[in-house]
Design a protein around this nucleic acid. Sequence first.
RNA 1: GCUCGGGUGGUGGAAUUGGUAGACACGCAGGACUUAAAAUCCUGUGUCCUUUAAAGACGUGCGGGUUCAAGUCCCGCCCCGAGUACCA
Length: 966
Amino acid sequence: MTNEYNHKEIEARWQQYWAENKIYEVKEDPNKPKYYVLDMFPYPSGAGLHVGHPLGYIASDIYSRYKRLRGYNVLHPMGYDAFGLPAEQYAIQTGQHPAITTEQNIKRYRKQMDKIGFSYDWSREVRTSDPAYYRWTQWIFLQLFNSWFNPKNNKAEPIDTLVALFETEGFKGTNDCILTGGIEFDYPAFSAEQWKKFGEVNQQKILLGFRLAYLSEAYVNWCPALGTVLSNDEVKDGVSERGGYPVERKLMHQWSLRITVYADRLLQDLDGLDWTESLKESQRNWIGKSQGASLFFKIQDQKFDIEVFTTRPDTVFGVSFLVIAPEHEMLLALVSPDRLDEVMNYVETAKNRSERDRQSDVKRVSGEFTGAYAIHPFTGKEVPIWVADYVLGGYGTGAVMGVPAHDSRDHAFARHFNLRILQVIDNGNNHNILESSFDAKEGNCINSGFLNGLGVKKAIKKAIHEIEERGLGKGKTNFRLRDAIFGRQRYWGEPIPIYYKDGVPYPVEEKDLPIILPEIDKFLPTEDGDPPLGRAANWKYKGEYDFELSTMPGWAGSSWYFLRYMDPKNSESFAGKEALQYWQQVDLYLGGSEHATGHLLYVRFWTKFLFDLGLIPANEPAKKLINQGMIQGRSNFVFRIDCYNGDQKTISFFASKGYIDENESIKNIPILFAEFNKQNQQKLSLDFSKIKVVKLNVDVNLVENDVLNQSLFKQWREDFAEAKFVLEDHQYQCSWEVEKMSKSKWNVVTPDFIIEQYGADTLRMYEMFLGPLEQSKPWNTQGIEGVQRFLKKLWRLFYDAEGKLKVVDEVAEKNALKSLHKTIKKVAEDVENFSFNTSVSTFMICVNELSDIKCTNKQVLKDFLVVLSPYAPHICEELWRNLGEAESITKAVYPTFEPKYLEETSFSYPISINGKHRTNIEFALDAAQDFIEQSVLADDIVEKWLEGKTPKKIIVVKGKIVNLVI
RNA sequence: GCUCGGGUGGUGGAAUUGGUAGACACGCAGGACUUAAAAUCCUGUGUCCUUUAAAGACGUGCGGGUUCAAGUCCCGCCCCGAGUACCA
């Protein structure tokens, strides 16, 4: 029998036991309530896991284990998002097949995760790059291709229902809102008879305009360095999110998914979700619904109109100019001959400015007068039309009405080009409208004809009403959300299951799925500029037709993986009906907030789509979602002082932190050198003008509590072998800073390292102890010993110094029961509220109290182990078994607390509140008696009562009356 | 600029949602055990006045307010973090 807590032995033993006995495998069980806890699965990168990655996994594992103890049938799976750019970039550089590196990385991830003691059901593992998995990703794509969105029913339907409509009613053109739901669809109207005569190719081309997966010519974010297109959420500040390469706009033939038709539902359904407010807010912003009106302006001496979109039709009387985007299609038609050169020049410069230039140059005002005038629809006045790149071609109608008084951009423009500024809203402040604009969210209309005197909200309604009444336009809703570009000119992704016949895309037949990713010799585009799949030899559908050569983006496989976990081995469907019906949807989803506008939007989109087709029972993927914070690195630094003496020889040494000031220069040069000479028994000659302080990242693993281990430091790098130090208090103190955790900063701490030294249970508890789950915080190994001490202390509660079990079966002391039941209650509350950090403190307090009273009671200790086991499963399992239990602690039941053992710490008793709830003092005292020690009552408090006043409230805090409310 | 978070000891962070602010842990200081170290245990630790103690005063970014009672609620500022951006 051991007499000390040996984490290595314990953790190895029980991890093996859990795996061998398949403790965590789950099956659908109608007799138990289900609970589905999902982690965002990782992309297995080459760098492996650092200590920040498992944070969310640990939290979800604690929650899962807790729910199991509470009698739930818990689905808690894990897998890998295995398609992706880094593996392919690596393949291009080394020729190594991405499948091989991915496999290696997965193995490493698995090994690292296994050591932490997670309770995943590994029999349900999925990998998005596995053909048995991506077969169904391709299948869902086919469903998208074979569906359209019926605005009348507000849901997706099979494309056949649209064909049936065309066959009976034809199509009434772009304004046929019944069919297009407001989507721009550029095809002339046709009748049912015409439709039938169109022939296959034309019919297919029309249908393509309605399919939820469609091919179109569109401006895309092209990244030349990566050789592929990117979706909006993969571009940050004009550069690619992965790699940070420049991105440009390019017109390309592209597969897209029509997510925009779901914009309203994606927005509406957010309200019912238990997700963090900030995350819902970023989705709302991303979807960017804005309500307003489109309004037509007649052009002087022209037959066509310009349509503008505005959210503020109430300010229409303040319009003093129109601005259209340089890409606007009517630009050439309206520009006057004498302005043509200037305008063309401007358009040319605007085109050549990259997205990034344009963004970084927001402040600069530029534009050109077109020479044309529009007619104000209400006043009939002439309004000059300008072209400027602050108006975006891709949003709204590509044209805006300039209201300089109430829009800062219009104001800057008007000031720069000396255009008229007319205030039309009065908010009561004497605002100098020529100086600056104000965004008039409140106020009354002035100078505005029929709107005069109305408040903003009423004016908007009235303006829209008038616009519609007079046939000048109509109320309209715009979304910022764009359709999702779906094709990638890349190798390492799911092939898009499409082939071409007569230039028309056709879906591959379902029975031919999966379309396996073909082998190719090189992972680069072909010489003709085709994507890498163009290199595949003899790759034809049915030996005859060309396949689509682009692959799906990284987010395809991750948009439905939560469904596959429900039934991962099914070869008949993506998941069986029974499994889907049982597991429904994710109850708790845990992951990083960086996926707010990418993955989390796409997965909702696919879920809604599959729900519309009646294939799954829930229309949202996850009821509750929690974002765990990022763990940053905590870098340590040393300061090297380089001095040059008269002979140009360099002498370098390292000065402890105390000698360096905030600006990273030496605080006091003579003192430092005196110390150097004293500590190193040298005599250094000085040249004050040539001293340099160099700040160097030092490997955090050579540092403990900011104190450098000097001998390890000397071994670390050859050029430091002879390093000399100037110490404070015989120690070398390092400075530190919070930075991103990365190899180059020498601040990476791996879970493997921590587990080796302290054990998985310590790691798990310490990660929770660091702070609130959702908060970002730096990793700091300082302090981990506190948690380890706690576990050692727990161990000593069971074993004496000789290693003899000292637990006995006896009647429990009241104090022990008090401690225990307080803990049972508090930890349950904490876990339900995801405040894991405070329950670690609760455990520590409990163990301190139990050791203080020398508790050896078996039942108390066993209950405590059950409560602790979600956090520290290995040590609890070990102790549990050593107490003679035959079954794993994971099969235990979470103990219930009894209120009689819970000490009230504060108490406030109302005697009367506003005449209601009237009782007398004796009664109040009686009720308070249980909580108040007699002695406390004696003094000034009773005196107050004796004055004859009736207190409304007795306030008791921790057993003492602290105040009376008279 | 807009939106959402957040400012509490030397440090990470608690605080029953209005009830003794600083739990718990780290660090630090002192002590016990030990030939010594490690490990373990005990004591102290917000600031100020005070030889010490008792006792007190001040303390949750700043300024005001509500309340018997404010870290918590209200008003006005300052600062930090995250997201987003010529979206009309």
